[in-house]
Design a protein around this nucleic acid. Structure first.
Length: 415
RNA sequence: CGGGGAUUGGCGCAGUUGGCUAGCGCGCCGCGUUUGGGACGCGGAGGUCGGAGGUUCGAGUCCUCUAUCCCCGACCA
């Protein structure tokens, strides 16, 4: 993409209506636009990051044999009344609306009820189980207080996976596979070293713990006790002697930290499936309950967390795999032929399917460097006099040193 | 929902004890000089001060109500 083609632009001042680093930088760099408190639009650059994160999650889900669906945002109230989750006194974060005929509708805040309800049309026998189905969609929650930029919004992108198993053993096995898969996702996003599987309250439906994935950051809302050796943690909400014993955690090796919940997995037993009358018939012809699990990852929240934790004083720093572009290509004005040469390189890189932003603006080099840094593009390539020897200047966003490499080698360095 | 802070061109801000044509920086447009870390000069465009009501000869400055945003707390299937 040519920068001259990008309608967004960077700004030097932090917006006055945002305190959190992630929102400040993402707005300054033109990744997101604030519509109202807790509601953001994703601009061309931000959309690419969001899609790249989704892609990584999607790959992992597909590897587990999960199937992606797109569910409706508008929800009929009847199915929610069955599980007693329609009443505002029970679930106080609903956005609701009405048809002209007066029929009440909910704006999807989660999708357990509708997915279970829809499966009734297809699941009746043990032969059709298990079912693993996921969605990556916007969810809407009327939070009393939106905060921290992308970390707690009223409209946000979320991946939710729902599993339906015929037995506890089957469920348990799959559940642990999802945990593994989540760990892969956080590793790929370069958050692995400081994202902890964290035991948390299982909720009213479950005797067991639920699992949260908490990324350590001062901006986090959760207090968690971390065992840095065992690489697990326990949420302060359930921190007590009994639970420590259950989890064989030793008080003396736990450190209190702030965490951002970037994922959550629940065992739901058969609470929703029973309630909504989704059963299956086993080999012996007996009607049996279906064991359900749900597994969420906040995609837009992850974008905020990553922006937040990797940023430096010059701006954003994206991990390679989710950066909106891999290369920020710059021509310099001191060399009169630089622009022509850069055009050539731009075309070559593009042909090789490398995502590159070509800063073709007629501005001074310093401004381009500053923007390259602010946008957090992993590789900066500058074309100057050295190109006569097929050399271009290469700089990694995360490092300060500049190296000169043969143009042909770029492809092997950039991935 | 309780407490605190904020709201003035696109963005960030300043506006004395109410006083005459509401300023500054960034950005934007034009011309010129520059050209490796957000250059500089000159010339422009652009705001009626979140909204409503009130006090006053006179309100961005005072009063009342209200909306929105941020932070802390409560809350977070």
């Amino acid at each position: 993409m040519r920068l001259s083609n990008l309608y967004t632009k960077t700004i030097k001042n932090n917006p006055s209506d945002e305190q959190s680093l992630n929102a400040q930088l993402l707005i300054r760099a033109g990744f997101i636009h604030k519509e109202m408190a807790g509601v953001y639009s994703y601009l061309p650059l931000g959309k690419r990051v969001l899609d790249n994160i989704s892609k990584i999650i999607r790959e992992e889900m597909n590897n587990l044999g999960c199937l992606e669906v797109q569910m409706s945002i508008l929800q009929p109230k009847e199915i929610w009344e069955i599980t007693d989750r329609w009443d505002d006194k029970k679930v106080d974060i609903w956005f609701k609306t009405k048809l002209y005929n007066g029929q009440e509708l909910g704006i999807g805040l989660t999708h357990e009820e509708p997915i279970v309800d829809s499966l009734k049309s297809y699941i009746d026998s043990y032969k059709s189980l298990p079912v693993y189905v996921y969605q990556i969609q916007n969810k809407f929650r009327n939070e009393l207080r939106a905060k921290s930029g992308l970390l707690r919004g009223r409209e946000f992108l979320m991946k939710d996976l729902y599993s339906f198993s015929e037995s506890q053993e089957g469920h348990r096995k799959f559940y642990e596979k999802v945990i593994k898969s989540y760990q892969n996702i956080y590793s790929k996003l370069e958050l692995g070293d400081f994202t902890y599987r964290t035991y948390a309250d299982g909720g009213i439906f479950s005797k067991s713990f639920s699992d949260e994935f908490q990324t350590i950051s001062p901006i986090g809302e959760d207090d968690i006790y971390v065992d840095e050796v065992k690489k697990i943690a326990i949420n302060a909400e359930i921190y007590n002697d009994l639970n420590l014993k259950k989890l064989s955690l030793d008080k003396s090796s736990l450190v209190l930290k702030k965490g951002v919940e970037v994922g959550n997995t629940f065992s739901l037993e058969s609470k929703y499936t029973d309630a909504l009358d989704l059963y299956y018939t086993d080999k012996n012809g007996h009607k049996k309950s279906i064991i359900m699990g749900c597994y969420g990852i906040g995609v837009s929240r992850l974008m905020g967390v990553i922006a937040e934790v990797f940023a430096d004083s010059n701006g954003l720093v994206w991990p390679n795999c989710i950066a909106p572009f891999k290369v920020y290509l710059i021509s310099v004005n001191e060399d009169p032929k630089s622009k022509q040469k850069t055009e050539v390189i731009y075309k070559l890189l593009t042909q090789k399917n490398i995502d590159v932003i070509y800063d073709d603006r007629d501005v001074r080099a310093g401004e381009k460097f500053a923007d390259a840094d602010l946008l957090g593009i992993p590789y900066r390539v500058v074309v100057n006099q050295n190109f006569e020897d097929k050399q271009v200047e290469l700089k990694h966003r995360k490092q300060n040193k500049i190296e000169f490499v043969q143009f042909d080698r770029l492809e092997s360095i950039i991935y």
